[in-house]
C-alpha cells in the first residue's frame, strides 16, 4: 500500500494517528499534496453520502473528518509555502443566543469542513454581537446561525438586524437552519439561505460563494 492509499484508508477508518503519519510520508516523498487532497475530498464525499443514507453514523463521520483534519494540518504549511492553498471560504458558525444545543451545528461544521471550507465554530449560546465580531475578525464570507428551539429562532433574525444596523449586511451571506426552522421563515427574516440538512448546507454555501 503506498502512502496515498494508506492515507485514504486511515481517513475511511477514522484513524487520526495513521492519517497524520501517511500525510507526512507523502510530504517526505515529494508528492504534490493537491493530488491526495483531491482523493480525500472524494472519499469524504462518499462517506457523506453514506452518512446521509444512514449506512454509517455520526461517530464514523466525525472520526473520518478528524483524520482528514490531521492530514490537512501536515499539508497546509506546505501548500501555503508553495502558494497552492485553496480554501473555499470562511464560515463563522454557532448556535443562536440562548440555545444550548449543538449537535446539528456540529454535523454541519463537520460536513462543511470536509468539503473544504474553513469553519470557525463559536459553539452554543452565541451572542449576536459575537457572531459579527468574529466574522469581522476572521474576514468571514458566511455567517451561519443554528436554532433548535422556537424561542431561539429570533436570535437569527437579530443577527441580520444588527448587521444591517451596523451597515455590514452586504458584507456577509447569512445562512440559517435547525430543527424547527424552514425556508419560508428564512425568507421572512431576510436570510440568504436555509438548508434542511448538512449536505444541503454545503450546496448552499457553494452557491452563495459562487454568486459573490
Amino acid at each position: 500500500m503506498d502512502s496515498v492509499e494508506k492515507l485514504l484508508q486511515a481517513v475511511t477508518d477514522g484513524d487520526e494517528t495513521v492519517a497524520a503519519e501517511a500525510a507526512q510520508e507523502i510530504i517526505d516523498g515529494g508528492i504534490d499534496p493537491r493530488e491526495p487532497i483531491a482523493k480525500l475530498t472524494e472519499a469524504m464525499r462518499i462517506l457523506g453520502k453514506q452518512f446521509e443514507d444512514f449506512d454509517i453514523f455520526l461517530p464514523e463521520m466525525i472520526m473520518a473528518a478528524d483524520a482528514m483534519t490531521a492530514a490537512m494540518r501536515i499539508f497546509e504549511p506546505v501548500l501555503l509555502a508553495s502558494g497552492k492553498s485553496e480554501k473555499k471560504g470562511v464560515i463563522v458558525l454557532g448556535s443562536a443566543p440562548g440555545d444550548m444545543h449543538e449537535i446539528g451545528k456540529n454535523i454541519v461544521k463537520t460536513v462543511l469542513t470536509t468539503a473544504g471550507f474553513h469553519v470557525v465554530d463559536l459553539g452554543k449560546n452565541v451572542q449576536v454581537m459575537d457572531f459579527i465580531n468574529k466574522a469581522e475578525e476572521v474576514r468571514a464570507d458566511i455567517i451561519g446561525v443554528s436554532s433548535l428551539m422556537t424561542t431561539t429562532m429570533p436570535g437569527a433574525s437579530d443577527v441580520l438586524k444588527l448587521l444591517s444596523d451596523k451597515g455590514l449586511r452586504d458584507k456577509y451571506k447569512v445562512i440559517v437552519g435547525g430543527a424547527p426552522t424552514n425556508g419560508e421563515w428564512a425568507n421572512r427574516i431576510g436570510a440568504d439561505g436555509w438548508s434542511g440538512s448538512a449536505s444541503d448546507a454545503v450546496l448552499l454555501a457553494n452557491r452563495l460563494l459562487e454568486a459573490r
Partner: peptide
C-alpha cells in the same frame, strides 16, 4: 400547546418576553 408570541411579539429565550 406552547406560545409562539406574547402580546404580539415573538417569544425570545432568555429575554423578558419569555
Amino acid at each position: 400547546p406552547l406560545l409562539g408570541n406574547f402580546m404580539g411579539r415573538p417569544m425570545t429565550a432568555h429575554f423578558p418576553l419569555e
